[in-house]
Design a protein around this nucleic acid. Sequence first.
DNA 1: ACAGCTGATTTTTTT
DNA 2: AATCAGCTGT
Length: 685
Amino acid sequence: MNSLAALHSSWLDRLNPAQRRAVTHAGGPLLVVAGAGTGKTQTLTGRVAYLVERGTPPDRILLLTFTRRAASEMLARASELLRESGRDARGVWGGTFHAVAMRLLRTYAGALGLDHQFAVLDPTDAADLLNVLRHRLGLDQTRNRFPQKATCLAIYSRCVNADRPLAEILQDVFPWCAEWAEELRRLFAAYTEEKQRRHLLDFDDLLLYWRELARDPTLGPILEQRFDHILVDEYQDTNGLQVDILRAMRSTRRDLMAVGDEAQCIYAFRGAVAGHMTRFTELFPDATVVVLEENYRSVQPILDSANVLLDERPPGQGFPRALRAVRGPGETPVLLICSDEDAEARAVADQILRHYEEGVPLHRMAVLMRAADHSALLEVELARRNIPFRKYGGLRFLEIAHVKDLVALLRWMVHPRDELAALRVLQLLPGIGPATAAQLWSVIVEADAEFSTLLRVRVPAAARPGLEDLVGVLRSVRTESNPPALVERAIAWYAPWCAQLYENPEGRQRSLENLVHIAAGYESLEDFLADLALDPPSGAGDLAGPPLRDDDWLVLSTIHSAKGGEWDVVWVLHAADGFLPADMACTSTEEIEEERRLLYVAFTRARDYLYVTWPQRCFVHGPLRSDRHILAPLSRFITPRVRAAFRTEVVGRRPEPAPKLPEAPPTPMVDLHERLRARWQTEQR
DNA sequence: ACAGCTGATTTTTTT
DNA sequence: AATCAGCTGT
């Protein structure tokens, strides 16, 4: 025990008293209220290390995080702390709720009556399946247009995750779809049945089945005993379903540690409720609460701006809890008033270069925005100036058309009964559309997935050679099991169709080659695909972005994807009403308050410098609002008091005074009026 | 009967 | 910019 104490002291002493109290907490439920930048990650990793050091077997610890990356980073740091004691944290169950659910369900599939071979539907597949069923139910031929497949999935998912009835969700969140309540209910019923019939689980099912498993009178207790300690990061963003799971997993055992910050709850669209933090102590009345308030990240002026931002909330929106900077004074944040978006992009690029020349590497800077397309002009400007960047958030890797095509082929190779994948692949061939593809599929099903029967079907001549090669590729899994080799075979088949179907085939092909490298880390193609669905490469930019000359790149990120991150210099783009808050999120107080928290998250990512930009004129493009300019008022969250925490700079063209015309020389009079009238008098027809 | 095209319509953020 | 229903030429 003495030697253990000596080992601890090396890193335990570096924690502040509150952090140490959390890390060495004796037992029972523990809530850590951790404001932004207060060392919540150190506290969590410290706790893991402490538990392992005190003898808890790593595989009896469950660490639930918001992304997989967060889990692996924390476990690596915990192992670091443990090195002296000769133990390590590998073996700890770490990952997202979804990834852990996947692992548990693979283990208990049999007992649940689930096919061991169940496949996971990524959101794109889920939407495609809904689309199929929507047509089957005749919901395409309606007076008004039925909601799009992605919207249907969003509605379904919100109901499941918030555990609230459809009618309520429609009323509160999707009022423009309220007229479709009955049709949607039928659609979701069909969807649920169809998934079960095909042994498919979507992301939400992973959680739903876990909850059922944990609540089961026989299996539940076994599952609960499986873990001595459960630790949850970003607790403020857990939804009702996840809270249910935690309660079921801790009905008799009491060791549960939750870490979070109510002011950073930004996932209402996934069913999170800002009040879950406060409700923790209701669910676990014997909980110990530890509050971390000392901020180690930012200089005081940045925290001042964040503190005022929260202080301007209407009453009843959570406790005011001011952050104190351990680091002390620093630069005042800057509000950058730009004449338009072009000026914004140029000014931000200028400043990036200035900080770079002062010695800040690009990867210590980040540009954050509410929606992925807010950085469109900036991206052009960065490319023009050869500033390398990576973009996180926005279009997901698996949503890019050519990636979807290739992944469908890989899935079909692995799961011969994957109808959605097969139909997508078959329709790549010229002359084959929905009907022929469906016919080919039924032939295969009858032949018990013997691919060569495909060649007996009469297809348009143009499709014939492609189809023959396809059979060869599909059968290659029988002789080859090396994932990268299989991915290469798939690419070889797909490349010509890709070139025919899309612009920029070289670029697309290069991004596909990256899949070969990623696949190299896997034992089987199956594992590779399962992981790809749950944890795809972050952002399209990872693989399709501009060529990276060196290892240094600027980060562009949605605020949602920036969660947990920190940078020396941070820009927050488009701090204009209609963009932040987004105009689609202004129908209720709850939505608006969430937008305010989003801005709070953005502010508190910055260590040394914070710039908030306001383009006075914005170009709105995309759905619903045909491309046009609008005058955008400053974000309602930048109230006079908040603005007082900033220094203001103005960039771009001021409205130019009308150019003075040179004095006109005297000229003869002309009758303009007459000429204009005449235009219509002589018009024939 | 079908594939592929045309033109109207479309809500952001992510595991 | 993408989706989707309906139209048109094969």
